[in-house]
Amino acid sequence: MKKIVFITLSLLLAVSFWNCEKDDICAEGTPTTPRVIIEFYDNANPNTLKNVTNLKVTESGQTDGFVFNGVSEIQVPIRTNDIQTILHFTANGDDSDISNDNLDEITFNYGTQEVYISRACGYKMTFQLNTTDGTVLTPDSNNWIQNIVISQPNIETENEVHVKIYF
């Protein structure tokens, strides 16, 4: 009896693999919902990339976030279930001295679109930054960010820079 059950299960497993189509497995490296690609530039010399140091990026109302150190390009996610994401960019936010933290708030305003990938992978979301107010820096008395420029409003891949920040 055990032998018959084993053979039956083996045949079912073999048939399921034979019926497996290419579209049943989401291949590694398949494009997913893209993050916003941001490059940092020297405000005094706008064509020169500038590395951020101890930068912490968190969503408004959250304490956990992403830390970046010694890089001029970062990738951050935005909400897929909304048309606005507010992120806090805290200079010196990842060092032990909280007295030197300088938080600047950037609001990303965008439209969303679901894009079908495949049966196995499902959908991904793409974003379109609004052309008039796609990114808004909340002014305060001590902004470390001086200017924001949208260089690519269509956020469909992570292969290009979407936003440039000058500081």
Rank of each mutant, 00 (worst) to 15 (best):
M1H: 11
K2P: 10
K2F: 15
K2T: 04
I4F: 15
V5S: 11
F6A: 15
F6L: 14
F6K: 15
I7F: 15
I7G: 12
I7Y: 15
I7E: 14
T8C: 14
T8K: 09
T8W: 04
L9M: 11
S10E: 05
A14E: 01
V15K: 02
V15G: 10
N19G: 15
N19C: 07
C20Q: 15
E21L: 12
D23L: 07
D23G: 12
D23E: 15
D24L: 02
C26M: 11
C26R: 15
T33E: 09
P34E: 10
R35I: 00
V36P: 06
E39V: 04
F40V: 00
D42T: 02
D42E: 10
A44R: 10
A44C: 02
A44V: 02
A44H: 12
P46F: 10
N47K: 08
N47V: 07
N47W: 01
T48Q: 15
L49F: 11
N51Y: 04
N51M: 08
V52A: 10
T53R: 09
T58W: 01
E59Y: 06
E59L: 02
S60Y: 10
T63W: 07
F66C: 02
F68G: 03
V71F: 03
S72V: 02
E73F: 04
I74P: 04
Q75N: 12
V76T: 14
V76P: 13
I78T: 09
R79P: 05
T80L: 07
D82G: 04
I83L: 10
T85R: 08
L87V: 02
H88E: 06
H88R: 07
F89N: 01
F89C: 07
A91K: 05
G93Q: 03
D94V: 00
D94T: 00
D95S: 07
S96V: 11
S96L: 11
S96I: 08
S96H: 12
D97M: 05
I98Y: 09
N100A: 04
N100Y: 05
N100R: 10
D101F: 03
D104K: 00
E105V: 03
I106T: 11
I106D: 15
T107I: 10
T107R: 10
T107V: 12
F108V: 03
Y110L: 00
G111L: 05
G111D: 13
T112D: 07
T112N: 10
Q113V: 05
E114R: 06
Y116E: 12
I117N: 03
R119G: 13
A120D: 08
A120N: 09
G122R: 13
G122A: 13
G122S: 14
G122N: 14
Y123R: 05
Y123W: 05
K124H: 02
M125K: 11
M125Y: 04
T126L: 08
F127L: 07
Q128W: 12
L129I: 04
N130D: 14
N130H: 14
G134R: 07
V136A: 09
L137M: 04
L137T: 03
L137S: 07
L137C: 08
D140P: 08
D140K: 10
N142E: 13
N143P: 05
I145Q: 09
Q146D: 12
N147S: 08
I148G: 03
I150L: 03
I150Q: 07
P153R: 12
P153A: 04
N154L: 09
I155F: 05
E158L: 02
V161R: 01
H162Y: 08
I165P: 01
Y166T: 01
